[in-house]
């Protein structure tokens, strides 16, 4: 399956604005994030803990809904899906 991951701000600088990852059927958001993170070497730790989980501060938006990082491993993707990764915000 082809999944598109869109990154904003500092994540965009590190991981690219729009990335395509190829994942197997039944892959989850967590699987796709791990593939993306695996492309950048040590900077992968911006997204992932040493245990390979998405860091608590990462905001994930999939199909218009916010996904808790802890739930990313339970949300199955479909071919052609897109999701967005936001770093911690700093507005105001």
């Amino acid at each position: 399956m082809r999944i598109t991951i869109i990154c904003y701000a500092r994540f965009r600088d590190v991981f690219g604005e729009e990335s395509i990852v190829e994942v197997p059927d039944s892959a989850t958001i967590l699987d796709a994030v791990r593939l993306l993170a695996g492309r950048v070497g040590p900077d992968a730790d911006l997204l992932l803990t040493p245990e390979g989980l998405i860091r608590d501060y990462v905001m994930v938006v999939h199909q218009g809904s916010r996904i808790l990082p802890a739930e990313a491993g339970t949300i199955t993707l479909s071919d052609g899906d897109t999701f967005t990764l936001f770093p911690p915000v700093s507005g105001g």
């Binding site: 915000v89 700093s90 105001g92």
Partner: peptide, 11 residues
Amino acid sequence: EIKAYVPIWKK
């Protein structure tokens, strides 16, 4: 709330 949740970033 804006500082905590709204996707806005400063550079």
